[in-house]
Design a binder for these strands. Structure first.
Lengths: 341, 341
DNA sequence: TTGTAGGCGTTATCAG
DNA sequence: CTGATAACGCCTACAA
């Protein structure tokens, strides 16, 4: 930061008036003489005056900055949510600090400390998959920083939440697979103890139950993360079973794509031999051969709504309305990697 | 931001000492009595004291905040660069404000104004594809804010730059295609007047020339952007030519994937009838069938180096070493969407 | 219509 | 070893 930036008192001096007059002139205070206002604004422009938001923040105890904590930014899922968040918040004059936890609880803790120090006005967070305690978030809340949790739930944490009905998304997918004739449906699940993982697993289980299909332990395999690489081994485990599945429901599209890749390598025909359904509807997926069936989530809306809810808190800081828990419905998108009903 | 946050003077009062003593105790000033230090730190912990970085920034004229301007965050390319940037900067105690221009010059202008106002210590920028004048960046520089431009060049702007040898990447790809026997090579180019677009186009042209192949105007089609959708129509234009190409070099992977998609639809066999090569090496591409040949760029390194160069300026604010222009070499990755040599 | 004074939270400087 | 003071840039209640 340069030290030679022009300030209000610089302008005041040159004009032989007081700093407060300059301050008022800059915001067109009605009680000022028009000439004064004009003189000040002209000089301000000429000198390229930029208000120092730092000083303003300090005075107003308000930084107009929001912290956003996500597991990682390179996934299309989270970066799309961020776009939704930014579109709302930037338009309301807020700055956004995006922080990646890299799925690490420890980094998440450090991030929260930092956000506290820089005095963000609010926080939007999707916790890491390794986060089991949420005290750090409670701490934020206790310090008066409103929080909205999105996508991944923090059970028992009493804050506003914007989630997706993962249970329903999974249920729809499995129900469809069964109706299309699949009987041996496997689930490439995600990291354990994550709300999204759990809910999708439960949807899977209940859909089987409802259709009187047995649950086979060996058909449920957990990937340790959400990348392609992490999908390879679990898929192999599944397809090398003596009695391999005739359908795979994957925790997300990357894993589903790995599954397609391995399935083809092992000479399974998709969808004749095996149906595959993913989750997220990433932009690439429709261009695969066969085009991937998947469960679409309203990513952009998730971001927007989370931001809007946070905004509403920032506007009425005092009143504590009852907790909001918004749940979006996902939609099954059937393409060609699963048999049509 | 809560008003009930504990400050240095809160601690001072409770301990009946002065604020300056507390300030010193908090940073283990050697001249203080150990008991004082302990008392202060204990109380600080107990009260969950968090230093107000705002006040610090105001005083030190230094915000420890860096602005990053990119066209959009949802592309894997830019989000990976950001990760490289963050890994370097966060470790050095900086906060990062990520701003999306959405490929709009106007938004870029607004972003620069804002960054100036919040007094960022430095800026990393990859300009929008519609930016033709760089006065706003000069203004930043004149205000004493160091800038590093990455990936997309700003011709005639005298700042440090971290670029990729796009010319070479294109040249390698075309040369390979020619050596593999392709004779009618088309180029799905990108938005005009972008440095990366121009350099890749030039590499394409020169590789043809070097190999004594004629340049056909109709084989050069510009996509208006970098998304799948924007690749569809240009590909159709190309493949419906009376004399369609036997190879397509696409400006990026998304466009290349669209090209593969359309080519298959129109019954071109890949790579027998037509070879396709993309640019970027996005993670999905290797899982396509056929796996996409492409040009890899060291995204993470681009981010890291840009951040490091910026850091070096922040550490020695006075001396103006001569401009750095670092150029990474891309690498051709041959998979199955192009004929092997 | 404009100026003065005080304060937001912190730390460097000078005193004691 | 510790305290008082001033300053970073801005705004606002109060005064004139």
């Amino acid at each position: 930061m340069s030290s030679k930036r022009v300030t209000i008192s610089d302008i005041a001096q040159k004009l032989n008036i007081s700093a407060s007059t300059v301050s008022r002139a800059l915001k067109n205070h009605p009680a000022l003489k028009k000439e004064t206002i004009k003189a000040v604004q002209d000089l301000a422009n000429k000198l390229n005056y930029q208000p120092n938001l730092l000083a303003l923040s300090l005075r107003q105890k308000k930084t107009n900055t929001i912290g956003v904590i996500i597991p990682e930014i390179t996934s299309h899922f989270f970066s799309s949510i961020i776009t939704g968040i930014q579109d709302v918040l930037v338009n309301s004059g807020y700055n956004i600090i995006i922080c990646q936890s890299n799925e690490s609880y420890k980094e998440e803790l450090a991030i929260v400390e930092n956000l506290l120090r820089i005095r963000v006005d609010g926080v939007l967070v999707s916790p890491s998959s390794r986060t089991k305690k949420f005290n750090h978030f409670s701490k934020l809340k206790q310090s008066g920083v409103p929080i909205v949790v999105f996508d991944r739930d923090c059970p028992n944490l009493e804050v506003d939440k914007v989630l997706v009905d993962d249970y329903d998304g999974a249920f729809q997918a499995i129900d469809y697979l069964i109706k299309s004739g699949c009987k041996k449906i496997a689930h490439l699940s995600g990291p354990k103890n994550l709300s999204t993982t759990n809910h999708r697993l439960q949807g899977y289980l209940d859909a089987l139950k409802k259709n009187n299909l047995p649950v086979k332990e060996e058909y449920i395999v957990h990937a340790s993360g959400f990348t392609h690489e992490e999908g390879i081994q679990p898929t192999k485990t599944l397809l090398r079973l003596k009695n391999p599945p005739d359908a795979i429901f994957a925790i997300n599209d990357c894993i589903a794509i790995s599954a397609m890749y391995i399935a083809k390598k092992l000479d399974f025909k998709i969808p004749e031999d095996i149906s595959i359904i993913g989750f997220d509807d990433e932009p690439h997926t429709r261009y695969f051969k066969p085009a991937l069936s998947t469960v679409w989530q309203p990513v952009y809306s998730i971001g927007m709504l989370s931001a809007r809810i946070l905004l509403s808190h920032l506007k009425n800081p005092d009143n504590t309305p009852k907790l909001r828990k918004e749940i979006f419905k996902p939609e099954l998108v059937i393409r060609h990697s699963s048999i049509k009903i």
